[in-house]
Nucleic acid binder design. Structure first.
Length: 576
RNA sequence: UGGGGCGUCGACAAGUGGUAAGUCACCAGCCUUUGGAGCUGGCAUUCCCAGGUUCGAAUCCUGGCGCCCCAGCCA
């Protein structure tokens, strides 16, 4: 995987940001600050489970938690919710930290793990038992499911529900001591089997699970469940606002119940809605499957909506933060059009990416009246949006490459580029007029011929005549060959999970999500580029140097194309 | 007659009883040595529906409708 190469990335977590938009979470915090509920403190946390790589959806949560803390002069912790060693791995712990840092946030010395609290959590469990609020249950998983009831019918109380406190304590201690096999018993809260909220039907608090934990090793053979561990972890860290996603709304009564029973510091859980991006995957399970079954090259495949995938693709942290800001925070589940994300990167990169001339699909152009061995150099500005980025020299000669799409034998209506008899400007260089095209035996155009106007040096005709089109080009003898990878949506369907009976979501995968162009020609100035550098290839879009780049072979990823109003017009024409 | 949520422009989203912000998209024009960028203007008489309260309702009340989540010893 590429390392974090974003030298230009600025921290986003320190100091107040510009005008943060209003949302219901801020309203709640404001109200708490007025009432003095948390002594005007704001302390949030980002609590990922280290069982996968972070994706763009997590970025929203990260920006929200760290962003709110920063805006209110508060703190945000990074806490790994590592209560299920059978699914978790150190690889994920490392990648998550790298991703959060890359996004621009800093947890300073507040890196925590739920496993840091295992001893404390165990104490709370015994406390609950002593209060008669928890019991050891011998029901098997299947039996427990039967006893739980259904959505519309109440559950039945476990036959073990009324064991004595002494027996429960003894059994629980023996669970901890490893006297019973995995899955044979659980510790359950004693709440209400008839509750309409299934989470309150005597939920499991601890299960027996012999798995080596990445931090506590084999110290424990019982592990706490999410609901139990999470609220107490928040409490121990003196979190004020525990922000999570909507599916935990049903869990809030349980979150509150545990803390109330033990009479400990009590944060406020607040739930917000996740967002979806059409034509992609955001489910951790599916992302894992894509990686394991090699449908993609890895977690950081540039087509993946993972943070590391997007980083490798060339997205900037700024653009991801901008997205989070633009989509807002509410309780309505939303589908964010890809255009919003794309606009965010374009806006960011338009201001900072140096321009380069790159011909992706080369077509040879010979200037018949240009001296054979002559080479000129033209000064070209690196970024018209930022003069301070300077300029560079561009060699020009008799044989050039232009984009295949910039020449048409028969031009469609409104086409401003080259066709027999047409004159265009070669950006920064000269006006050229097309005088003919050569074809091979199969009728394919092999090269086109032009004449140039020596009086248009620099791109301005002396007689003042105008030209409609300006195209990019590269001198054939002075260009480097490179590979460019173009990406498209991973899914053919807006909802990748939309599957016919008997089918698999894998059938919805777009077989053409990556196109490799291996014979691209780029101006030689690109030579100095190193992995992670980003450019605007004139008239094409924004590209980044992929880490697959080796000394002789440059490899680029297309981050996003430029807006192409001609493509839109032409598409409209053919539709008729 | 299980519980919990949500419903404001094509997509997001402000609005918290005083007469529908903003962003993306889209459309039109200007400008342009990137058909890029930029600039200007347009884009919800109406807020899921129906009643009601009120001088006044997206906001309050009543009743509908639609969508999402929950029956892991996952988080």
């Amino acid at each position: 995987m590429s390392d974090s190469h974003d030298k230009r990335s600025e921290s986003a977590g320190n100091g107040p940001r510009a005008a943060a938009p209003s949302n219901f979470i801020r309203d709640m915090i404001d109200a708490d600050n007025i009432s003095g509920r948390f002594e005007r403190r704001v302390h949030t946390r980002f609590p990922p489970e280290p069982n996968g790589y972070l994706h763009i959806g997590h970025a929203k949560s990260i920006c929200l938690n760290f962003g709110i803390a920063a805006d209110y002069g508060g703190l945000c912790n990074l806490r790994f919710d590592d209560t299920n060693p059978s699914k978790e791995d150190i690889e994920y712990i490392e990648s998550i930290q790298e991703d959060v840092r890359w996004l621009g946030f800093d947890w300073e010395d507040r890196l925590f793990y739920a496993s840091d609290y295992f001893d404390q959590l165990y104490e709370y469990a015994e406390q609950l038992i002593e209060m008669g609020k928890a019991f050891v249950c011998d029901l098997s998983a299947e039996e427990m499911r039967e006893y739980r009831g259904t959505l519309t019918t109440p559950g039945k109380e476990s036959p073990y529900r009324n064991r004595s406190i002494e027996e429960n304590l003894d059994l629980f201690r023996r669970m901890k001591a490893g006297e019973f096999p995995d899955g044979s018993r659980t510790l359950r809260a004693r709440i209400d089997m008839a509750s309409g909220n299934i989470n309150m039907r005597d939920p499991v608090i601890y299960r027996i699970l012999r798995a080596t934990h990445h931090r506590t090793g084999d110290k424990w053979c019982i592990y706490p469940m999410y609901d139990f561990a999470h609220c107490f972890s928040d409490s121990i860290e003196k979190i004020t606002h525990s922000i999570c996603t909507l599916e935990f709304e049903d869990h809030r009564p349980l979150y509150d119940w545990f803390l109330d029973q033990c009479q400990v510091y009590h944060p406020q859980q607040i739930e917000f809605a996740r967002f979806e991006l059409p034509y992609t995957v955001m489910s951790k399970r599916k992302l894992l499957e894509l990686v394991n079954k090699k449908y993609v090259s890895g977690w950081d495949d540039p087509r993946m909506p993972t943070i590391c995938g997007m980083r490798r693709r060339g997205y900037t942290p700024e653009s991801l933060r901008m997205l989070a800001e633009r989509i807002g925070v509410a309780k309505k589940k939303t589908m964010i059009e890809v255009g919003v994300l794309e606009d965010c990167v374009r806006e960011d990169l338009n201001k900072r990416a140096p321009r380069m001339m790159a011909v992706l699909r080369p077509l040879k152009l010979v200037i018949d009246n240009y001296p054979e061995s002559q080479v000129e150099e033209f000064e070209s500005i690196n970024n018209p949006e930022d003069e301070s980025m300077g300029s560079r020299k561009l060699p020009f000669s008799r044989v050039l490459y232009i984009e295949q799409d910039d020449f048409r034998e028969v031009p469609p209506k409104g086409y401003h580029r080259l066709f027999p008899g047409a004159e265009v400007r070669l950006k920064h260089a000269y006006f050229v007029k097309c005088v003919g095209a050569s074809k091979d035996a199969r009728g394919q155009i092999t090269e086109i011929h032009c004449t140039y106007d020596p009086d248009s040096r620099g791109g301005e005709a002396k007689d003042g005549r105008k030209v409609k089109g300006t195209i990019h080009w590269v001198s054939a003898g002075h260009a480097v060959t490179a590979e460019v990878r173009l990406y498209d949506r991973l899914s053919l369907k807006e909802d990748l999970g939309d599957v016919e009976e008997g089918g698999s979501w894998l059938d919805n995968l777009n077989p053409n999500s990556m196109e490799v162009l291996s014979d691209c020609r780029i101006e030689r100035n690109i030579d100095r580029a190193t992995s992670g550098d980003r450019f605007q290839f004139l008239r094409h879009g924004y590209f980044s140097v992929d880490p697959d780049t080796t000394a002789p072979k440059l490899v680029f990823n297309r981050i996003v194309s430029l807006k192409d109003s001609w493509a839109k017009i032409e598409k409209g024409q053919t539709k008729v």
